[in-house]
Amino acid sequence: MRPTLLVSSTLLLAAMLTPLYDGSRLAAQPQPAPRRTGDRRAADPAPLAAVTTLLDIDRAFSKTSSDLSMRAALDAMFADGVIAPWQRGEIVKGKAAVIRALLQSPDSVAKLSWAPIRGGVSADGLHGFTFGYLAAEHPDGRLAHSKYMAYWVREPRGWRVAAWKRRPIGAAPLASEPQAPALPRRMVKATVDSDVIARYYRSLVNAEVGFSQLAQRVGLSRAFADMGSADAVNMGGPDDPQFVVGAANIGRTVAPVNGDQPATITWGADTAFVASSGDLGITFGVIRPNVQQDPNAPAPGAAFFTIWRRASSSAPWRYIAE
């Protein structure tokens, strides 16, 4: 999410320090992608099976976490190189650093639980994402609610979270219906060709840069509407109890005022992960003002990550979750 810097910085800080949502009542089951009218070809069951496995693993980590401390729960789920957006425009890298930052919160004494409402996988079956609702249950029984988003990679030891963020909401969400998964048309064999993967990486980084450049020309609202997929989601703010769904709705949410004016902020991709199939990836960066008011002050910024998806390795990238 890239609204004004002040709002973004506040939300990102709160998102990482506030507690999570109790997903024990959710039973999100993935639904098959709708078939096009007149398409007589049988759907490939492998992509749906892959995302079902990922969602089940996400739920399993939540179930296990109910008996663990916050440190132990996150340590079990996070990849060694996990990345999280943080305060003051920082991007925290590495399991130890991310967990150490999260344990600064008073919620470090709480038990975590969560449940995904949607997931997606890459065609090579090695990258995926989930998002949903979380809670931290404090020793006195108090629950505090939030939304979460996770980007996963499949390691030799299994699926682990490579990027993670959460954002608070004032109360439990009004609804928790599952959303249809983001699926490739078919699964493909992973490639180890470094030149191919490097090309996909560059195209993903360029998509994030192009996103910012488009906002400078047409405004944030139009840029978010144009660069997102029809089923894209945004975490919204603390007053949004649900995820914001749809690129047009996201555009109106991130820029409710003067959204058609050239953006006064800019951003890019400092780093990224991309699947070897070239159809799913995530970018990390920092939003900064085009003009810094005080040249002697530390440069303000708000860290973010954006999950991107495309229909094939040659199609244009569109953000799917952020």
Rank of each mutant, 00 (worst) to 15 (best):
S66K: 11
Y201G: 09
A50E: 12
V121D: 03
A255Y: 07
L112P: 00
V109T: 13
R288C: 03
A49M: 06
I250C: 07
D270Y: 02
E177D: 15
I265Q: 07
V51G: 01
A163E: 08
G246L: 07
K63T: 09
W164F: 15
A135K: 06
D22V: 14
A123C: 11
V51T: 09
V205D: 04
Q242D: 14
N296M: 08
W267A: 05
S212K: 07
P316H: 11
L280W: 08
D22L: 14
R185L: 11
A215G: 02
Q29S: 14
E137C: 08
L143V: 15
P262L: 08
V257W: 06
K63C: 00
A162P: 07
A150N: 12
N258I: 02
A33H: 04
A43F: 03
V98G: 04
V205N: 03
D260H: 14
A163L: 07
N249H: 07
A198Q: 11
L6K: 12
Q242C: 06
V291E: 13
P168G: 15
R288P: 00
V92Y: 01
K165D: 15
A28W: 09
H127R: 11
L204D: 01
G236R: 05
L17D: 07
A101P: 00
W317L: 14
D270W: 00
D44S: 14
D240P: 02
L174D: 15
A49V: 04
A302P: 06
G210C: 01
M1W: 05
L54Q: 00
S146N: 15
L143S: 03
R100Q: 10
G228N: 04
G125S: 10
F131K: 02
A73K: 09
Y21H: 10
P181W: 15
R160M: 15
K147M: 12
V109Q: 13
D22S: 14
V209I: 08
P106I: 02
A263P: 08
P298L: 14
T64L: 03
P34L: 07
P184L: 10
P256Y: 04
S9G: 09
P3G: 04
Y151M: 11
F224V: 09
D107W: 05
D240M: 05
Y200F: 15
A110V: 00
A215E: 02
R36F: 11
Q213N: 10
A275N: 02
P139Y: 06
P241S: 12
L174F: 15
T10Q: 13
L280H: 09
W86I: 01
P316R: 09
L55S: 02
A269T: 02
L12W: 03
S277L: 07
A215C: 04
V257D: 10
K111R: 15
I83E: 06
N249C: 01
M227R: 05
V109Y: 01
P47F: 04
A299W: 03
S212M: 03
R40A: 10
V205C: 11
N296V: 11
D193L: 03
D39C: 12
W86F: 12
A110R: 01
V218H: 03
P106F: 01
G246I: 10
T191V: 09
L214M: 13
D39S: 13
P45D: 07
D195N: 13
S108I: 00
A299D: 02
L134T: 04
